[in-house]
Computed example of a mutant assay.
Amino acid sequence: MKTNLAIKTQNLTHTVKTAADDLTILNDISMSIEEGESVAIVGASGSGKSTLLGLIAGLDVCSDGDVLLYGHNLSKLDEEKRADLRGQYVGFVFQSFHLLPSLTALENVMLPGELKGDKDAKRKATEFLEQVGLEHRLQHYPRQLSGGEQQRVAVARAFASSPKVLFADEPTGNLDSENGKMVTDLLFGLNEKQGTTLVLVTHDASLAQRCSRQIMMSSGKIIESLGKE
């Protein structure tokens, strides 16, 4: 299904059950993100940013409403079909890196391609590690890498699978300012080079301002959208 929209939500609401009562985390959110956009989702802790990211990435299913990823309604799909779509369209960079400790940097970056049966996975992984400045760390394990180096491996892994949309949840949250700037430059540089849609959750104002649009959240609602709608 062809569309110029990467993501569209319609009346998205998400409620979870607690011991005391039902808790509405997101309330009636409708928005769209075009192909190639860079969008920052910002707001105070507890505003629903990470929950929104998880729903539009297909990691979870909303209680009500619709989430469309390249025209596919994630709200109507089971976990297996959502996983297939994530493999086809989506890459992730998280605050906590999520590298497999038993694999080298090269093997971590190769893994998504190998799972897809890409016979060129090793060459692509090597090229992306070179692009993030880690050509001398290919055979190092995560425990042998600094935090900044681990996050650069995670960025290389995300882009090596050539995602149409890259989701990043606080990608610089565990990094010092120097490594944070390096990872930010990588995200936007690779985003621009590949035309990948970039969706970030961040508390970092300077990172948010580099995006073409900022979606500001409070109490589970979008209260403002700055930039191109």
Rank of each mutant, 00 (worst) to 15 (best):
V93P: 12
F159G: 09
H140L: 06
H72R: 05
K119T: 10
A57G: 14
Q131V: 09
K76N: 04
S63V: 15
G117A: 07
G87E: 02
L74Q: 03
P112S: 09
G91L: 05
V93N: 12
L166C: 06
F167V: 05
S102D: 10
L74S: 02
P142W: 01
Y89I: 08
V153W: 00
L99N: 12
E114Q: 08
A154M: 13
D64S: 14
L55A: 09
L129S: 07
G91Q: 11
L134F: 10
Y70T: 02
A121K: 01
A105V: 07
A57P: 01
L138A: 07
E127H: 09
S50P: 08
S146N: 14
F92N: 08
S50I: 13
V109H: 00
L55R: 07
E80P: 11
E130D: 15
E135L: 11
K116S: 13
N108T: 08
E107W: 05
L77D: 04
A158Y: 06
D84S: 14
E127S: 14
F97A: 15
Q95T: 14
F167E: 01
G87R: 11
S161T: 05
E135W: 04
Y70D: 02
V109E: 01
D66A: 10
D64C: 09
H136Q: 12
G48E: 12
A156V: 09
Q150C: 15
K122Y: 01
A83W: 03
K76P: 03
K122L: 03
Q144M: 12
V61I: 10
A158I: 03
D66I: 02
G148I: 13
Q151D: 15
L166M: 05
Q95S: 14
L138G: 06
A83F: 02
